[in-house]
Design a protein around this nucleic acid. Structure first.
Length: 585
RNA sequence: GCGCCCGUAGCUCAGUUGGAUAGAGCAUCGGACUUCUAAUCCGGCGGUCGCAGGUUCGAAUCCUGCCGGGCGCGCCA
């Protein structure tokens, strides 16, 4: 475990604590064992140390160890001017408080001067490949696709911000036997004009129709299998030409949603990209001696799970084959330390198999391959009164653009009601409506299923995107009226000690580094979502009791510095999540 | 049947990896706009942390067994 990124003030405090702990328990005591945490109750102080490990090392009862540590710390900080202003032992805990002025300066300078951990972190030599969004373009781009897209896009930005080399890859599902079905469906019922007008819906229509009609006519499935065989033959035949056209139109249609969602990729290389790399991959696997024939298929036998199928008995490949080819390619091209797959939890077994195959090959990278799984999107079924899966074949899929448009429209009516004179209402409505949807998806632990609920989705109060954006807009408004230089704020001679009642805001901001670290550690964006929500709550609350523009100098300028720092951190935090920060709303 | 995941307030969820009195939002009830945006703030109500054991100074968190729900289990992705 590496050193946690901390601000200068925290580092100074930790150094003092290490010295004090050495006095209590001897110099070989590892002060890293003292958990440095935020007390739940703010009245306990700014930071708390649980002294159980220290007590063990010093052979003291925990309260006695805490008292001894507090005494030692007091001795070190008695001279004043140190990071720690006060120390108190309470039972087995030592609670400490930072110097108020130093806390304010530490955090605000850090944010405004864009210093790590607030600004971009120093580059490290790790490369992270993140496979996300990766829609199957033979199927509709429905609301469920939002999850992989926004989680992956957020993780990509968070890794980038913390100094990692990042390769975001959209592994489009543009190949495979599904495409045989869509080819046949298009030949039967497709309409090129309608396809061009609304590609996603038209493909969806014919896909659903294929599903329905193939139940009655199994011959359709045989034709679909043949179509994919023809496609995979490599010949320039009708299947190939139609596939190319459908693919091009679909890919173009995705650009819009990706722009709205702020999803960016270093590479858009679909499954078809590996078509000419499959043979080499198969040769490598065979050469490693890990393949066998089983029931007419080429497989890798695995312990404790079904075999990984590489070539089906009809001679065509399967997604596992293409995923393996992609891993070979990504290792050779990018040399990754981590390869993340932001894909739904239903595919857990598939990725377990994939990793097991790579382990059999003995790659050292195997340990860095991780399935970043997430829960399903469920809809409430009024009949059975239960949350159920959306059914594509049942035709009750909800399209992503539908949801985004609905949210934007709702925001538009709220703006007309609350802020009728606002300039550029449509752009603001887009930022807030889409932001609300993205934020909502990043709010909880990935693995939780998302219950699709219009009421909750279109509620913009409380723990929501608009709530956080609103805090940013209020702060921006103050800064506008104060006419301060937001890009070059003068930090000299700020009366930092005037900010003694901004504890909550400052302490929350101070936690930014550990928030990003936890995001990376868990591959979770919700930690950051929850951080910006807390910061917004803290600043909303602060603004209620502390007027900025009417304050006397030097308090006024100190508060403006706080306001600017909070606004920047909210904006930057939201940006990492893929949510815009309108200046006004 | 087997494997994995989930179970915390009426609802939706946090709980910093075993630490202080289990926290938010929504809903509900009551307050706060002649002052920088009320998409806000302040307060009330609301919990046998699914159940039962175990581990120890200490468990929502760890171990075991049940109960409930979800996902998956060879030629779909």
């Amino acid at each position: 475990m590496g050193e946690l990124a901390v601000t200068a003030l925290e580092a100074a405090a930790k150094a003092l604590i290490a010295d004090a702990a050495a006095k209590v328990a001897g110099s070989d005591f590892d002060a890293g064992q003292l958990p440095f945490s935020r007390p739940k109750d703010a009245s306990h102080g700014d930071a708390a140390l649980a002294c159980f490990p220290l007590a063990k090392a010093a052979r003291l009862a925990p309260p006695a160890a805490a008292a001894a540590l507090a005494d030692a710390l007091r001795e070190l900080t008695a001279v004043g001017g140190t990071a720690i202003a006060s120390v108190e032992a309470v039972g087995p805990f030592v609670n400490l408080r930072y110097s108020r002025a130093m806390l304010a300066e530490d955090v605000i300078r850090g944010v405004l001067e864009q210093r790590a951990p607030f600004g971009p972190w120093d580059k490290n030599d790790k490369t992270i490949v993140i496979d996300y969004s990766s829609p199957n373009i033979a199927k509709p781009f429905h609301f469920g696709h939002l999850r992989s897209t926004v989680i992956g896009a957020a993780l990509r930005r968070i890794y980038k911000h913390t100094g990692h080399g990042v390769v975001g890859i959209n592994h489009l599902g543009d190949w495979g036997s599904q495409f045989g079905k869509i080819l046949v469906a298009f030949q039967e019922w497709g309409d090129m004009a309608r396809l061009r007008a609304d590609p996603m819906r038209h493909l969806y229509e014919i896909y659903v129709r294929f599903k329905r009609e193939s139940d009655a006519d199994p011959n359709l499935n045989d034709r679909a299998a043949a179509a994919f065989r023809h496609l995979e033959s490599g010949e320039d035949n009708v299947e190939r030409q139609l596939w190319q056209e459908l693919r091009d139109i679909s890919v173009e249609a995705f650009a819009g949603p990706y722009r709205r969602l702020a999803a960016e990729f270093e590479a858009i290389t679909g499954e078809s990209f590996y078509e000419d790399k499959i043979d080499a991959t198969l040769q490598a696997l065979k050469g490693a001696g890990i393949t066998t024939m089983s029931e007419g298929a080429l497989v890798v036998e695995l312990d404790g799970m079904p075999p990984c199928i590489l070539v089906k008995s009809d001679g065509t490949t399967i997604y596992a084959t293409r995923d393996l080819a992609a891993l070979f390619y990504r290792r050779a091209t990018y040399g990754f330390d981590k390869a993340l797959y932001v894909v739904g939890g239903e595919q857990k077994l598939h990725f377990k198999q994939l990793i097991a195959v790579i382990q059999k090959l003995g790659w050292k990278e195997a340990a860095g391959i991780e399935h970043v799984d997430f829960g399903l999107v469920l809809t409430f079924d009024a009949e059975t009164k239960r949350w159920t899966k959306f059914s594509t074949r049942g035709g009750n899929a909800i399209f992503l653009d539908e949801v985004l448009d609905e949210a934007v429209a709702k925001v538009r009516t709220i703006i007309d009601e609350k802020n009728p004179t606002l300039a550029d209402k449509d752009a603001v409505a887009e930022a807030i409506g889409v932001g609300a949807i993205v934020f909502n998806d990043l709010k909880n632990t990935r693995i939780k299923d998302v219950k699709f609920d219009w009421d909750e989705l279109l509620n913009f109060e409380g723990e929501t995107g608009p709530y956080v954006q609103y805090a940013g807009a209020r702060l921006a408004s103050i800064l506008r009226k104060a006419e301060v230089a937001v890009d070059d704020f003068d930090l000299s001679d700020i009366a930092w000690n005037e900010l003694e009642d901004a504890d909550q805001v400052l302490l929350t901001m101070q936690g930014f580094a550990s928030v990003l670290e936890r995001c990376i550690d868990k591959n979770e964006a919700y930690v950051l979502t929850s951080f910006v929500t807390s910061l917004a709550a803290d600043i909303h609350s602060y603004l209620r009791g502390h007027h900025v523009l009417s304050a006397e100098e030097p308090l006024r300028r100190a508060r403006l510095a706080l306001v600017l720092a909070a606004r920047n951190l909210i904006r930057d935090g939201l940006a990492l999540l893929g949510v815009a920060s309108p200046e006004e709303m």
